[in-house]
Nucleic acid binder design. Structure first.
Lengths: 202, 202, 202, 202
DNA sequence: GATGAATGAGCGTTCATTCAT
DNA sequence: AATGAATGAACGCTCATTCAT
């Protein structure tokens, strides 16, 4: 039955996610994934064309999950500043999840330079992230709470700072800094977007 | 002579840098490095303990080079805004160099999660980057051109935005966007640091 | 099934035995073992941790086989002189088997000096050999056919002469001498143990 | 000058002997030998055709040394029993020397099965050893102190027991047993050769 | 004579992939 | 649908050998 197969595939993707997060993209063997998924070695090859196919689906699966979560978070709020806060707080979910995701995500970003499919998937993820940014900024400009920044530029900037901050945080290997980076990120973005006199001069 | 050996080692590191940039960290074989360096297979093993030792030295070599270049760039300027511009322009040197460096750097960041030595080296690189930021901000605050932001926070933020922007740029695979990202990064940081009313509220 | 795996392991050990006997311990490659076993190169690594693990098991397997064979031989006899004859004849089975075994055994003895596990296995083999000697001598002394030699000493001596003789025979590379060495060994041991006046003077 | 070259060659053989004794025949690299000899890597290749050539000369050199020493020892004595004692005591020189020699010798014996030149050299060594035995026995029979054993047989037996005993001793890795094995060897040979009633019945 | 940098053949080991069951 | 035994390609590493200096 299709549903069962889908469950198996997700079971394997979860295992692969865990495995890559703990052991690293290139150390992970199909045997590792099988072990984490508590299935036999052949199963992964049965449900995916090959190892790369697993990773391709893993990247899609994990970025989709991240996007949906972030999108859901801003949907619950109604003002632009609240949405911004919700976005940043969703992106900085918690040390454990962030570590797991960014460890894996960094490996994929690195691979994306040599793998078009990864790059395509990341492009879609970026588009999704930017669309969240745009949505927030447009609302803010309608509300008058956000400055008249270029919407595209700003949405790029938002994601760049989020990713840049979380990568820097990850490298510190210090969970205590998580709140600091989150709050600093939010504060910087708030200042950046807030309507003072800092109109974009372009 | 020691000097000759040192040259050989650098020759190999250059080759490894090129190889990793083009083929990716884990695809690179010792044979690849030898080919890029135009030497025989055994040479790399002769000058480095093993493959990991090559990469360890490569990361040190390349981050040191980046830091020195950026530090030299700000040293030529005398006002904080000029230094900031020089820093960002040095970091966004040109598409070709940025692509090469960030491709390799991303791979190391990904590996750093599973390799303490890489993490240590990156920690030193971060410290160096932050020190550049601090130097600029301190000067700006003395001059009165920069706002009274928390210096540490701001120096983290500067690097986070630079790295975040360049990684995002890299993923677009579109050299045309390089200037855009550079200018946007500089503008955002300028706004962030410039003394308007956006005093740090902490 | 476990039994099938056990068969494979023994198949590989037989192949390794043959390979070491013909090519020598250090010339033997995993490919050689695979060729002798008529399996692919990966199989040996599949059933054993590594090459050394193969040899470790090979030494255990082959010394155990030799001991069991010799022990079975003396068990069939009922008087000490008959047992002694049976022991020596079992040890000097035939040129072909002796050549194969001592070629391999010599390599292991040589390696044992640098490999504790080999030494341990050989220690167990020695204990087993000596126990055969002790059993024969004790019976002989009970029967009154064997002199009052020190049992431990004599059991060491018996094995030393058997090994010393077979090594010397092996080095001659002349099968014709096999019977001569066997008979001389038995005769010398008989004289040594037989109850004349040569009581141990210690 | 020829003499200087000869010295260099012996220096290398000594180093090789030490290296093989400590590290084992197959672990020893030309670099090891160079290190032990305190010369540079190229020297060994300069004075010997190749690695095997070193070992070939090493075996000759070391067996010759052993033979000469044993022959000198018996030459100092005048009665057969004294010569026998001298022979055994020379063969069982001391734990340290015996360990060094037999470690190396065992490796050569093992290799001899796959290397005709080693076998030839060992044949000469055996001939020399047997000639010592024959000399002693002939004298003993002339004196009437030794029984009428077959001289060839007995000389083989003597060396077989000496080698068998020392190999067994070596494997125990216990210097304390050295005297025991030596005395037991001598006693057994004495009993074997001494003129009681144990005339050889062949 | 002596050095040691450079070469490249060869081997152990890993592991994705296949396929008989 | 699932297993895991078997295969063999590929790579890191070692080291004997060569040779320019």
């Amino acid at each position: 039955m299709n549903n069962k197969a889908e469950k198996r595939r997700e079971q394997i993707l979860r295992a692969a996610f865990q495995a890559v997060s703990e052991k690293g993209f290139h150390s992970v063997t199909l045997q590792d994934i099988a072990d984490y998924a508590d299935v036999s070695k052949g199963v992964t090859s049965y449900y995916f064309q090959n190892k790369e196919d697993v990773f391709r689906h893993l990247l899609e699966w994990v970025t989709e999950k991240i996007y949906k979560n972030e999108h859901a978070a801003i949907s619950k709020e109604h003002t632009a500043p609240d949405k911004l806060r919700a976005y940043v707080h969703a992106a900085f979910a918690n040390p454990s999840d962030n570590r797991k995701f960014y460890r894996v995500y960094l490996e994929f970003l690195a691979q994306a330079n040599h793998n078009e499919q990864f790059r395509d998937t990341n492009d879609r993820f970026y588009e999704n992230c930017w669309s969240i940014g745009r949505e927030i900024i447009q609302l803010g400009q309608k509300e008058g709470t956000f400055a008249n920044v270029d919407i595209d530029k700003a949405s790029y900037t938002i994601r760049a700072l989020i990713d840049g901050s979380l990568i820097q945080w990850l490298m510190q290997n210090n969970d205590q800094l998580h709140t600091f980076y989150r709050d600093n990120c939010l504060e910087t973005l708030s200042n950046y977007l807030t309507n003072k006199n800092n109109q974009n001069s372009n």
